[in-house]
Nucleic acid binder design. Sequence first.
DNA 1: GTCTATACGATGATAGAC
DNA 2: GTCTATCATCGTATAGAC
Lengths: 211, 211
Amino acid sequence: MAQHSTKIRLLNAAEQLFAREGFHNTSLRSLASLAEANLAATNYHFGSKEALLKAVIERRLLPLNQIRETEIEKVLSQARESNIPPTADALLRAFIEPTLEFRNSSSGARDFISLIGRSLNEPDETVRNCFLSLILPIFQVLLEGLREALPQLPQKILLTRLEFIMGTMSHVMCMSSHSILNSPSLTEALEQNELIQQLLKFVLAGLEAPE
Amino acid sequence: MAQHSTKIRLLNAAEQLFAREGFHNTSLRSLASLAEANLAATNYHFGSKEALLKAVIERRLLPLNQIRETEIEKVLSQARESNIPPTADALLRAFIEPTLEFRNSSSGARDFISLIGRSLNEPDETVRNCFLSLILPIFQVLLEGLREALPQLPQKILLTRLEFIMGTMSHVMCMSSHSILNSPSLTEALEQNELIQQLLKFVLAGLEAPE
DNA sequence: GTCTATACGATGATAGAC
DNA sequence: GTCTATCATCGTATAGAC
């Protein structure tokens, strides 16, 4: 930890504490202690606790969104070339796979994915909007693609089901340390790759359910 | 508000503020102000802020669980009588319908459903366990029924998919005031009854997806 | 039994010395 | 860039009025 700059140490400590204890339940003092920094360091480097949260989210979400967008565009351009509409399966996979694979890249990434998974259900607008604004452009691209893939599905139904899918995803993202039903959490019980495949099968079946 | 006892006013105010602002983001002072009670009233009537949360959850979750359990038992006993296994559709409906119908019974009920929907993804163990302990018995009954309904589905897959279903549900429960994709939130865009049917169709398709 | 007034240590935030 | 001092506000506890 100590080999990085104060700013980086604060980002790492905040990522861990915000994810594991919750944003409002994390004190600047415990944060400064974990980061081996002064109490005032957060305010100096970021301006406020909320600005630190935004920095934590942006640091990882911008690169992750880049990957997701690239994968979706790959599916769309292949569809255009071959003159065959994209499949919902390929589109969902392009969105979901990078997310869950990214989670396994480090313990910080795991904390981060848990944090943004929870942000979807966050009641506090300032916290929720902080991450919603970053994800909405990708959603638009994904939605456009799915409309091509499932032209027979009414727009309102498609929107509803995509919302359901995001709910399922956010729960899986949060379950890094706990799961509801079984005491060895899902992410341990299932092979990581098997979890992704199960999630994809589940949401695809829901999305393509007969109307 | 003022026609009720202090204890009831505190429960109502806590339900609203915990759901809309978050537990850790709600101060006892704003709570006392909304309830038109003294700052020390929470501590006198409940012992602590956390004990108040537990009381808020138990007040509504115990009756709701009673309804859910009755509905599930009704499906199971009908199956036993006719010697035909219960359907996954009927079981999920018995669990989901009372939950979402309860939400529309009052604005307090709506806040409450939003609150427990969020509890599923809560990082703080004390908050999460407070409600998990109340819901686990119902889960066991539901799980047993689903095992009868889908005997060909491996246990591990069933557990995983039930976890996915809870994730989808919790997101819908949280979306009382906001939704991710469209600015008129889902619960306004769709007729309440249509939302329930859409949710049921979605999770049933996911649960019964070919393995 | 209920409630009020008040106090205590800890929190988020900031200003100014270094 | 870093740190100390400081402030209003937080959850909690208690003593005592009704």
